[in-house]
């Protein structure tokens, strides 16, 4: 093995996602064909000689990294759900005149900053370089995102967590799970406290605490 060029180009998350999706659908199609051939074999009762040749061995390592990377890239805190080919091409053209470096542009595409504080961590000396034009950059980013998919991506991490967005039931389910888990943990802690304090003969104060927590 010889590494000719360790970094010939940088890829955006969106490009990697597109490649992984392609691999994933290829894999699914192959599994389906394999299954279909198997079924046909069973029905006809005689093994087809070609079946084993078509059935390509599945590479475990590739599947692992592919599925895990897909999960990371499509997580609800990534802006990728709202991005599109055309949107990104336009965004890159729009932010051309601001004099960003290549790395900064890549990160603007990857993270799609819509808040000043998000842009602040990506671009060095943001105020000196952009000044008043910062808001223009943010509006370019907002324009590049698909507004229909936006609520799901911007609602992430909000402290109240209640996002009545029917478009993303999976995310909602996850949130519900988290809250129930937290609730269970809390009651457990309260229970242990209660027993401890009851032994010490100071139950009254704890009851008061419990009432506070329940409110």
């Amino acid at each position: 093995m010889e590494v000719v060029n360790p970094r010939s180009a940088l890829l955006s998350n969106y490009e990697v996602l597109a490649l992984l999706r392609e691999l994933d659908s290829d894999h699914l199609a192959k599994t389906k064909t394999a299954l279909r051939i198997k079924k046909e074999e069973e029905q006809s009762g005689k093994p087809t000689p070609n079946a084993t040749a078509i059935e390509e061995e599945i590479c475990e390592n590739l599947r692992t990294v592919e599925v895990e990377a897909l999960q990371y890239l499509t997580a609800e805190y990534q802006p990728i759900a709202a991005q599109s080919d055309a949107g990104i091409t336009k965004l890159v053209k729009d932010i051309e005149p601001y004099g960003f470096t290549k790395a900064e542009k890549l990160q603007i595409v990857n993270l799609a900053p819509t808040e000043p504080v998000e842009l602040y961590v990506i671009v060095e000396e943001l105020e000196d370089r952009l000044g008043e034009r910062m808001e223009e950059v943010l509006s370019h980013v907002r324009a590049s995102l698909d507004p229909n998919a936006l609520p799901a991506s911007t609602a992430e991490g909000s402290s109240n967590g209640a996002d009545p967005n029917p478009a993303d039931p999976a995310a909602l389910q996850v949130e519900e799970k988290i809250t129930t888990e937290v609730y269970e943990a809390e009651t457990w802690i309260q229970d242990t406290n209660y027993i401890e304090w009851d032994d010490g003969g100071e139950g009254a104060g704890v009851e008061g605490d419990l009432e506070m927590d329940e409110e």
Binding site: P6, A9, N13
Partner: peptide, 10 residues
């Protein structure tokens, strides 16, 4: 975050 590397192998 991701990059392309050119690699040669037999």
């Amino acid at each position: 975050m991701f990059q392309l590397s050119i690699i040669k192998d037999t």
